[in-house]
Amino acid sequence: MSFEWKGVFPALLTPFTANEEIDLPMFEKNLQAQLDAGVHGVIIGGSLGEASTITAEEKEQLIKHAIKYLNGKIPVIMNIAESTTKDAVQQAANAKAWGAAGLMLLPPMRYKSDDRETVEYFKTIAKSTDLPIMIYNNPVDYKIDVTLDMFEELIEYSNITAVKESTRDVTNVTRLINRFGGRLKILCGVDTLAVEELCLGADGWVAGLVCAFPKETVTIFNLVKEGKIAEAAAIYRWFMPLLELDIHPKLVQYIKLAATQTGIGSEYVRGPRLTLQGSERDRILKIINDGIAARPVL
């Protein structure tokens, strides 16, 4: 299906049962909550989806199940996070065969490629598929910065059409627009900078806490795009302690606990991650429950 890189795209959690199997009923429950809130697409197999622990077979299961459940209402995007170019090309082919509408593409995993290697990696994948690609630029977590000069080379490929902007430098939104105009759609990839980047012209939001609070996330996006900044800011201020759960190494455990508390997820994770316990769990649970208690009326 054709779509635009605009709006709210949840980076979906991968729900597990207590014995670490995929929990499809819970997956459907969260998908329905996202649909009901009005999100514009979903991303499967990203960092929040525990990409490093799910198998190719499980990714296929999740992609196909989501496509069947959503029935064309919104696009299903597949994340690619591989260590080798060959494997990434294969994943792009798999995504096409399984019916995904587009790709979110990380730089090579494990090896810190230089600029030339990173560009060649992205180019090789882009020319292997006709699916639209969003480059995930997150030098904070993945140690590789996709610079403006690198994007200048990458946009030779017409299917490289968007960037998930996670540099944590909001001025990069302006630099991208100044350099490329509307050639690349820009989606904020850091929950705690979403309103700032949307106000500066970002087209969308690849969101994390949306997995637990979909309606609030979509409402903020819609209000900003309608120019109702004060109304958006009021919800954003309430949301901020929760959004900060997205910028911690344990974001998966924290956001899964939040989704459990809002009834659209479970806190089970797959090893080596462990569910939270003790004072850490109590501290995160208090942040979540305080947020739920003060949840704004939309």
Rank of each mutant, 00 (worst) to 15 (best):
S2L: 01
V8R: 01
F9Q: 05
F9K: 11
F9R: 09
P10S: 05
L13P: 02
P15R: 04
F16E: 00
T17L: 09
E21T: 12
D23K: 06
L24S: 10
L24D: 11
F27K: 00
E28D: 15
L35G: 00
A37G: 12
G41S: 08
I43A: 08
G45L: 11
T53G: 00
I54S: 01
E57N: 13
E57K: 15
K59T: 15
L62F: 14
A66C: 12
A66H: 11
Y69V: 07
N71W: 07
G72A: 00
I74P: 12
I80T: 06
I80F: 07
A81C: 14
A81W: 07
S83H: 10
K86W: 03
D87K: 09
A88F: 05
A88C: 05
A88L: 13
V89E: 04
Q91K: 08
A92H: 12
G99Y: 07
A101T: 03
P108M: 13
R110L: 15
R116L: 14
E117A: 15
E117S: 13
E117P: 03
V119L: 00
V119G: 03
E120Y: 13
Y121N: 09
F122C: 06
T124K: 14
I125W: 08
T129V: 10
T129W: 03
L131Q: 10
N137M: 14
P139W: 04
P139L: 09
D141S: 08
Y142D: 09
Y142S: 14
I144Y: 08
V146Q: 00
V146E: 02
T147S: 05
D149M: 07
M150H: 05
E153P: 12
L154A: 01
E156P: 04
E156N: 13
S158F: 05
N159G: 02
I160W: 04
K164R: 13
S166I: 05
T167Q: 09
R168D: 10
D169W: 06
T171C: 08
T171H: 15
N172K: 15
N172V: 15
V173R: 02
I177F: 03
I177C: 06
R179D: 10
G182F: 02
L184H: 00
K185H: 09
I186D: 04
I186C: 07
V190E: 03
V190P: 03
L193P: 10
E196V: 10
D203I: 08
V210G: 09
C211M: 11
F213P: 02
P214H: 00
N222M: 01
A234Y: 09
R237M: 01
W238S: 09
W238C: 12
M240Y: 14
L242W: 03
L243W: 06
P249D: 07
P249R: 04
P249M: 08
K250L: 07
V252Y: 04
Q253S: 12
K256D: 01
T260F: 11
I264D: 00
S266G: 11
P272I: 02
R273V: 02
T275H: 06
E280W: 01
R281A: 07
R281L: 06
K286I: 01
K286T: 12
I287A: 08
N289G: 05
N289C: 13
N289D: 11
N289R: 14
D290Q: 08
G291E: 10
A293C: 11
A294C: 06
A294Q: 08
P296E: 04
V297N: 10
L298D: 05
